[in-house]
Design a protein around this nucleic acid. Structure first.
Lengths: 96, 96
DNA sequence: CTCCTTGTTCAAAATTCATTGAACTATTGA
DNA sequence: TCAATAGTTCAATGAATTTTGAACAAGGAG
């Protein structure tokens, strides 16, 4: 699978803010922030939208560099890229 | 004229992030942040887009509560609502 | 009053974005 | 092998956003 993730240098503020400016995605990020110790799978977000829709929003978050997605078996484990975001845009995540 | 501005309580994070997630508007905000001592008029942003287009983006920023616009003569003086934003979403502006 | 400068409004066109369902891939377990 | 589970991809549709130019309003200078 090898899902593409942007590197830290590639993180673009306008892209990230645009991606975060959506209620569904903000809900996903809030959920990830509340569970930072434990990676979540896509299924955990089904209360925020349909399966297809969540897959779409999770791809947006990953492509923007907000989240990291790794394939484990048939699941995807999703985590916030807190360290990378904090290094590149200090305070952004904390303010959300 | 009496341009409408949202109150501090009405500021909505998703709306603000969505509005900031656009290169033109991020450029405007960066410009305002660099000139926080002196209010700017719409004309100062014409390198970022056409007159109509800038008017459109400035309205978005004002409606989201990012900027304050006051009419002075035939001009509009535009400033960042830093205090309001800092109170409601501490650290957000600083991270940008 | 007349012109010039500043911006706004409007409608149309172009673009982008979000949402859906059906079909599909890949893994796991019986 | 067969069926179930977890997600993705695709094409289509509808909605929201951006961008443009033409027309407009309002204030200031002469």
């Amino acid at each position: 699978m090898a899902l593409p993730h942007p590197s830290v240098e590639q993180l673009d503020l306008a892209t990230i803010l645009g991606v975060l400016g959506d209620p569904t995605r903000l809900g996903i990020v809030a959920c990830l922030a509340r569970n930072e110790h434990r990676p979540l799978s896509c299924g955990q977000f089904l209360d925020l939208g349909s399966k297809t829709n969540i897959s779409y929003h999770l791809a947006k978050l990953r492509e923007a560099g907000v989240t990291k997605t790794e394939a484990v078996g048939t699941s995807r484990l999703i985590t916030l890229r807190r360290d990378d975001l904090d290094r590149r845009f200090p305070g952004l995540l904390a303010s959300i």
